[in-house]
Design a protein around this nucleic acid. Structure first.
Length: 797
DNA sequence: TAAACAATGTTTTTT
DNA sequence: ACATTGTTTA
């Protein structure tokens, strides 16, 4: 998909397409086959505003795609008149695919199905020149925003007033999500509070710098589109005329700016903005009526209040859109009744919600498996062992997922998974693009695409080292101000600065490299632009020549980026540099999920939204983690954490595992962890608690071990088993840190070994070859384990 | 300029 | 505990 404005907006099909044939009778319409009455109603409704309250697993994607398919097949609309907003790019791709499967891919061509951010980028790229930006604007991610704010805070010495970078960044983001700009803030602040006045100055400068750099931050993408529509009604009218049916998924997680955007798009077009030759049906006054709106959501799954999502958007939908129809989908087609009972029980503890009870016809299924480990590594080992067991029962790895509250929890899981030779991948934590060398290379591309971007230019000014220090940088910035131009202009005019000949030559060299590359971007392939820059700057070459051993890996990462651009070009033959930069800026954690990869998926509970797996593990179900400590002080925090747990539970189709650890180390020291309050909310008969090895002595009290006594103080205790009855196999809160290398140790079935944690055991089978050979070992007390021979802490005895 | 050392923050979730 | 960032020193 191209973001460049080469696609005509005033499409020929502005009039409804002629109806070819009457729609099949509802009874034998294949698009309605297999739907329950509520789902059917949701597909068929022609209300101007429709709210589908879709409980978890209630087949909402199916309903949405069939609804779209029916609109298109029966020629009620052209594809280009449909705008569908999804939560991730991956969901957008799936929805497009499924509509295509239903009515043919050609018939579905031209729909806009994308995330809020992608849709806004597409609009902004087309309309940027209307308000002082160019089509090549940069999208600043949170790190970029922070970098810019950091410089401003430093310049203004705002930190002396206790204004930190993260506080300022968070506040700016929140204000933008509320559609409040710096001027709006100036009207509401307390002028006697110096910190607020200082913050206003930071906010002002930040906004000015963004505009000057021809850049939008994440929040701007939405907020500035709203601003554009409000300031330029004739521009808004273009889109209001074009989109006749708007669908929004995950409506419970929209923030105010997104809500406002939908309101703007679903405004009726005033007669003066209707062209004389329009073929859309006009009303009595000559205007065009508002587009139809379908929203889908579930307030029980609202988990993004922290980034401004406003649950009122869905709760007050009927008030916002009078005459709206509401359809409730409660039948679940995903999970077993046991899993749903647990989910219903947990979410039932949130008051102030519309009662909703998920049910299914598939039967009770297996009990939920609970496990309490001694440490996070013990817990991780349970997860690994259990996954292995489930896998042997025929569940493929890619149908298994492990969820956690915080990204930091991946560490213990990864350590154990590697040892157990379990194929896994971690979703999110987009580390690749956060690496310094990748950011450098990306900064070159951004500077080439958007010459106004001073932030990108500053980053590469002296990378690789070319003798352009902070003093020269300041001089260049100053010179840009004097010229009334951009920093890039100042670069080309470096001779006028009267600097030393060496520095001047270095600046002009860089200027030439960037200018030459900029000249090619409208036609050149993305990998060619990147390799040309890397060649001329000798970036990779210098890394390879470096004495720092880590630089070799950095060079490889940059080569990997080249491979990424090739991959992009293969998927988007028409894509240009700007398209590549857009795609990189807007990838979501769940987007790089590859269903065909035969691996277990690890992700945060937030990332898990909208996904489903045969077997789900929710780890770290402890107080201060789930609910997270930070949420306690926030209004609505614990309730939102409960919804998060609910989202996690309802991802599971057949098997659900809940696990926790008795101790967990954070920040270096180890603390005793208490079971989450949410565990008590699940009826005990639904959970099959499995104790860690050595916990047998207190098995009678295993339910009590869940902790919290009714009455206060002594909130929780593991009895005496924790300090006293420590079994030999207990895991310390530290896994042997150093990466072991057993060299070419070879084992065969029948060999006896000793393992640091599991004790003695006998090898039953060996699979794989070389460094990847895996031994299956029957331990005397710890059970059966799979070990990666090369790195396992074992010795032959 | 680089290396050595100290200080600091990180762990809430993300487009 | 660990990694990144800033500061001092050679």
């Amino acid at each position: 998909m191209s973001f460049l404005p080469d696609e005509s907006l005033d499409i020929p099909g502005l009039a409804p397409p002629p109806r070819s044939q009457p729609a099949p009778a509802a009874t034998d319409d294949p698009l309605l086959a297999g739907l329950n009455p509520q789902q059917r109603a949701a597909v068929l409704s022609r209300a101007d505003a429709l709210l589908i309250v879709a409980g978890a697993g209630s087949g909402k994607t199916s309903v949405l795609t069939r609804r779209i398919a029916r609109l298109l097949r029966d020629r009620e609309l052209w594809p280009s008149q449909i705008l569908a907003i999804t939560f991730t790019n991956k969901a957008a791709g799936e929805m497009r695919e499924r509509v295509g499967q239903l009515i043919g891919h050609e018939a579905a061509n031209g729909m806009w199905i994308s995330t809020f951010h992608s849709a806004c980028v597409r609009i902004l790229r087309r309309e940027a020149q209307q308000f002082g930006f160019t089509q090549a604007f940069t999208i600043y991610d949170s790190a970029d925003s922070r970098a810019l704010i950091k410089r401003i805070v430093k310049d203004l010495q705002a930190d002396t007033l206790g204004l930190t970078v993260s506080a300022a960044a968070g506040k700016i983001s929140r204000l933008k999500n509320e559609l409040i700009d710096a001027e709006g803030y100036s009207r509401q602040l307390n002028p006697n509070d110096p910190t607020e006045v200082m913050f206003l100055e930071v906010f002002r400068r930040y906004s000015a710098e963004l505009a000057r750099a021809n850049a939008f931050d994440f929040d701007d993408l939405i907020a500035q589109t709203v601003y554009l529509f409000r300031a330029f009604p004739q521009v808004a009218a273009l889109y209001q005329r074009r989109f006749r049916h708007i669908l929004v998924d995950e409506y419970q997680d929209t923030n105010h700016a997104q809500y406002a955007l939908i309101r703007e798009l679903t405004r009726a077009v005033e007669p003066q903005h209707v062209p004389a030759d329009t073929r859309i049906e006009t009303d009595a006054t000559g205007g065009i009526p508002a587009a139809a709106l379908t929203v889908v959501g579930d307030s029980d799954q609202s988990i993004y209040a922290f980034r401004g999502a406003d649950i009122r958007n869905i709760v007050e939908f009927e008030r916002d859109f009078p005459g709206a129809e509401v359809i409730l989908l409660e039948q679940n087609y995903r999970s077993t009744q046991t899993i749903l009972d647990a989910a219903n029980a947990v979410i039932g503890n949130n008051f102030d919600r519309i009662a909703k009870n998920l049910f299914t016809e598939v039967g009770a299924g297996d009990r939920i498996v609970g496990f309490t480990g001694y440490s996070q590594h013990d817990e991780a080992q349970f997860v690994a062992d259990e996954i292995q067991k489930i896998h042997e029962q025929g569940v493929p790895y890619n149908q298994i997922a492990v969820f956690y509250r915080t990204n930091a929890q991946t560490r213990a899981l990864e350590e154990i998974f590697i040892r157990s030779a379990l194929p896994y991948r971690v979703l999110g934590g987009t580390k690749f693009y956060e690496r310094a060398e990748i950011k450098d290379a990306m900064a070159y591309l951004i500077a080439v695409a958007n010459p106004a971007d001073a932030l990108a230019l500053r980053r590469i000014l002296n990378t690789p080292k070319r003798g352009i220090g902070p003093a020269t940088e300041t001089a260049l910035a100053l010179h840009a101000d004097q010229l009334g131009g951009t920093m890039r202009d100042a670069l080309g005019d470096a001779a006028a600065l009267g600097l030393g000949p060496k520095v001047t030559a270095a600046i002009l060299d860089l200027s030439g490299i960037l200018d030459d590359a900029t000249a090619t971007i409208d036609t050149a392939l993305v990998p060619d632009v990147l390799t040309a820059i890397l060649e001329r700057t000798k970036y990779v070459e210098l890394l390879r020549a470096s004495r720092d051993p880590q630089d070799e890996a950095r060079a490889e990462n940059v080569e990997e980026l080249v491979a990424v651009t090739r991959e992009f070009q293969r998927n988007n033959p028409e894509g240009r540099l700007v398209d590549f930069l857009t795609e990189v800026a807007l990838v979501a954690a769940a987007d790089d999920l590859d269903d065909s990869s035969g691996t277990v998926s690890l992700m945060t509970l937030h990332t898990a939204k909208g996904l489903e797996y045969d077997a789900v593990f929710i780890t770290g179900v402890e107080e201060n983690l789930l609910p997270h400590q930070m949420s306690a002080s926030e209004p609505g925090g614990p309730a939102e954490e409960r919804r998060l747990f609910y989202v996690g539970i309802t991802r599971a189709r057949k098997k659900l595992h809940l696990s926790l650890a008795m101790t967990r180390s954070t920040f270096g020291d180890t603390q005793v962890a208490a079971p989450s309050r949410y565990l008590q909310e699940i009826p005990t008969e639904l959970i099959d608690w499995r104790d860690a090895p050595g916990m047998g002595m207190r098995s009678t009290s295993s339910q009590r071990s869940l902790g919290t006594t009714r009455s206060g103080r002594e909130q929780f205790s593991y009895g005496t088993s924790l300090p006293l009855g420590k079994p030999k196999t207990e895991w310390a809160n530290r896994v042997t840190a150093t990466v072991r290398d057993n060299g070419d140790l070879t084992l065969a079935a029948g060999d006896r070994i000793r393992h640091v944690d599991f004790g003695e055991g006998r090898v039953t089978t060996v699979t794989g070859t070389g460094p990847k050979s895996i031994a299956e070992v029957q331990f005397e007390s710890a059970g059966r384990k799979r070990l990666l021979i090369k790195i396992a802490p074992i010795e032959k005895i």
